[in-house]
């Protein structure tokens, strides 16, 4: 499934990114997916880390994992990130949490975001441009 990209539109990236979005909260997931599709990225949505790992095991390729940490199922977002770091080294990882007390080992992700994440498209774009990002919420 190669992304069908429509180029040349304002606000749409010339090099679309393929995102695996794992978030169990439907409305948050839909909002993030909509925002990323609006800039031309292809987004595959799943609602658990288990589903995400299944896709990766099937051999589906992604450029970026955007994952919540706490999700239902056997694995959580940290397990998923660890799996990606080990088996899919080319993928970037952005983790997000709504738990203000939660912190994460930065070895497992390129970006750590606190929900609600504003401007998720710009935040993640910066990840691919190599721009510095302090907290992902600006």
């Amino acid at each position: 499934m190669i992304p069908a990209y429509v180029g040349g539109r304002p606000g749409v990236d010339a090099s679309p990114i393929r995102v695996l979005l794992a978030e169990d909260e439907f409305l948050l997931r839909m909002d993030a997916a909509d925002n990323l599709r609006r800039i031309g990225w292809e987004v595959i949505e799943v609602s658990s880390a288990d589903e995400a790992m299944d896709l990766l095991r099937y051999g589906v390729k992604f450029d970026l994992l955007l994952t919540d940490i706490d999700m239902p199922g056997q694995a959580n977002g940290i397990d998923l990130a660890r799996h990606v770091r080990t088996h899919h080294r080319g993928m970037k990882i952005a983790m997000m949490t709504g738990d203000a007390r939660q912190d994460v080992d930065q070895r497992f992700c390129d970006l750590f975001l606190r929900k609600p994440v504003w401007n998720v498209a710009d935040t993640l774009r910066a990840l691919f441009k190599g721009e510095p990002h302090a907290d992902g919420n600006g």
Partner: peptide, 14 residues
């Protein structure tokens, strides 16, 4: 089924 869902959704978006 994430693969099936995303494939159908992508087609309909196009």
């Amino acid at each position: 089924d994430a693969l099936q869902r995303s494939a159908v959704a992508k087609y309909l978006r196009e």
